[in-house]
Design a protein around this nucleic acid. Structure first.
Lengths: 356, 356
DNA sequence: GCACCGATTGTTAGCGCTAACAATCGCCGG
DNA sequence: CCGGCGATTGTTAGCGCTAACAATCGGTGC
């Protein structure tokens, strides 16, 4: 029934040799201790880098560990220390570039610090789903939780998590009093919009993300602010849902309006949909219409034309998140703490000066 | 130092009331037992659905669990049962649609069965990285491992994993004697190629994936087989690396060759690059050139033109993988077992009959 | 030469749970 | 009315580890 160490070809014919491990079992600390001629506690000390172990002893223990192929038992350690070395992540089940990148970056960072990352994907971002996912992680006794809650409904569910639970929110409500890491959407959107204005466009239209997403709202704010700062007219927002299809539909309307010469899409996929709508309508990009996206998906450089966009640094977000979370786990000052990562404008070929 | 249950506002002024849990500690099974007036073992039986518990007792225990907010301690359970309820996944650190989808689907499926999924992402698919990732999971004492090893170099590393370790390979070497789940690349590629031939094209060119990927090789085989079956000429393969950029570069060449009227791209991103190259060269799709991709990424319907492609069913792959792995974990007949999932052709607007 | 001190090592207890076995209870057949 | 049986419950041991304390050792200062 033991999973590992079964059928691994070890000869079990040795009868009572006191120096061998028990058959059918993975070696335990005691086996190492016996082989090294020390107590199990000394093995523990070597394993945990305790200073007061004689060099020679340390070597002997290490040799015994090597020889037996000993691996510490996490469960036993977790039981006695109360630390599971588990981090739970709550995220939407999405294959979108942004979320995937963030998740990947976080897993890499957390794993490098010796944690196991357990991702709980929710199908919907409603409060109940988020709360259930958080509860799931608490049932697993994770040491800390990272919640990616990009909507108010999702974020609100976190307010009911007891204060003692180490929790860091990503892309959540900046106004909530909690540990939070976000991309500075407003700055990114402002840069994108200004880039279009600087190219000579009178104003810039916006196809936004879903209105209930903080990211989307921030991008709308940044866009509006850039227009207002430039004294430009603020056209109505076309709301989207991040999908290429929504971009396409919004693009169909925008393509019919001759006064539209510049569009800032809330993400690259929507920009792709807009590109397609423009192409169908025979409006050339960037000849007649300039477009800027957001995210810098890897394919953006291969859209037709290559898309000017804004790139958030997901590695940085992941790093800040882990940092904040480890602080909470180790019981650092648990006050609110916010980290913001500023995105970068990536100019390509989808922006040009307007006609005449 | 206790993480959870700290600072959660519980009044700790109760002095010696025998019915309360110890302060600063999560309730344990014994606390539940005391409150319900039974032994801890009875609580354990209720928790594990053991049949021989009187209904009334069961209710009392459940009420006590509820009242205390008791959560079983996984570490303690793991320690005594030898089961960690952990599944380790080895995957390339990728934001590509295919891998992300598969990962998401697997996490969803495994979590639903009560497992925690730990993903170890490798930056490179070389043997050493894969081996290290597997070892990492074994260090964590996972109950089973899923390895996504789409190249020979990656797959070879699995041959050295002891037979007793429950291991399922996804997208690995079909010829290796192991538990394996794959998409039937050959069937998908054949369908795509035949679709183009059926539209009237004399032959079909192919921009492949990286030659050392099994998926890519399978798609090449399917493509070649379809051509041979139809008695069509087999043109040289343009090798790519899955990226839009590689597709673009291959497309630049193909676009200059007037005899090229149909291209099967090994994935949608490459198809996107080809589309762009064709557009730049003024070759209309599907007017002059027809293109089929593979993967059916969500944006494929919004490429210009909407891309005809082949859709693998990642949910099915994930389900088969989990199934196979759970069999191994529970010690079922551990012989080789292979599951194959057949992909589906999704016709859109990038294919038409050739000119004249 | 001896009490003492720090460095090193060993011993003991117990984390919270499940498995194995023991005990108890109510009821049946003879 | 008693032995026995199945259903239910309790008791004990121990999984492998770390924390706390105890013991030992070799030198130091006086």
């Amino acid at each position: 029934m033991t999973v590992a160490g079964y059928g691994d070809g070890r000869e079990s014919t040795v009868e009572e040799s006191s120096a061998t491990v028990r058959p059918g079992r993975e070696p335990a600390m005691n086996d190492v201790a016996r082989l090294a001629g020390v107590s199990h506690q000394t093995v523990s000390r070597v394993l945990n880098g305790h200073p007061n172990v004689r060099h020679q002893t340390r070597l002997r223990v290490r040799a015994a560990i090597e020889e037996l192929g000993y691996r510490p038992n996490r469960a036993a350690r977790a039981l006695v220390t109360g630390r599971s070395q588990l981090i739970g992540v709550v995220a939407q089940n999405s294959t979108l570039y942004g979320p995937s990148s963030l998740l990947g970056a976080f897993e890499l960072a957390a794993t490098a610090r010796g944690f196991v990352v357990s991702v709980r994907r929710v199908r919907e971002l409603d409060g109940a789903s988020i709360a259930a996912a958080v509860e799931h992680h608490r049932d697993q006794r994770v040491d800390g939780i990272v919640a990616i809650t990009p909507t108010a409904a999702a974020d609100a569910a976190l307010a009911r998590v007891p204060a003692g639970v180490p929790l860091v929110t990503v892309d959540g409500d900046p106004s909530r009093d909690a540990a939070l890491v976000t991309v500075d959407q407003e700055a990114g959107a402002r840069a994108a919009t200004r880039h279009l204005l600087d190219a000579g466009h009178r104003t810039v239209w916006h196809v936004s993300g879903p209105p209930d997403w903080f990211d989307a709202a921030g991008r709308v704010r940044g866009w509006r602010r850039a227009l207002e700062e430039a004294g430009a007219e603020v056209p109505p927002v076309s709301p989207g849902d991040w999908s290429a299809e929504a971009g396409y539909r919004a693009g169909q309307l925008l393509a019919r309006m001759p006064e539209v010469t510049a569009v800032f899409a809330a993400n690259d996929h929507q920009a792709l949909g807009i590109l397609r709508a423009m192409a169908e309508r025979g409006r050339s990009v960037p000849g007649e219409v300039s477009i800027v996206g957001f995210d810098d998906v890897p394919e953006a450089a291969f859209f037709t034309p290559p898309l000017t966009t804004v790139r958030p640094d997901f590695d940085a977000v992941a790093a800040r998140t882990l940092e904040l979370l480890l602080d909470r786990i180790s019981g650092e000052p648990a006050g609110p703490a916010t980290r913001t990562v500023t995105p970068l404008l990536v100019p390509r070929a989808s922006v040009a000066a307007p006609h005449a």
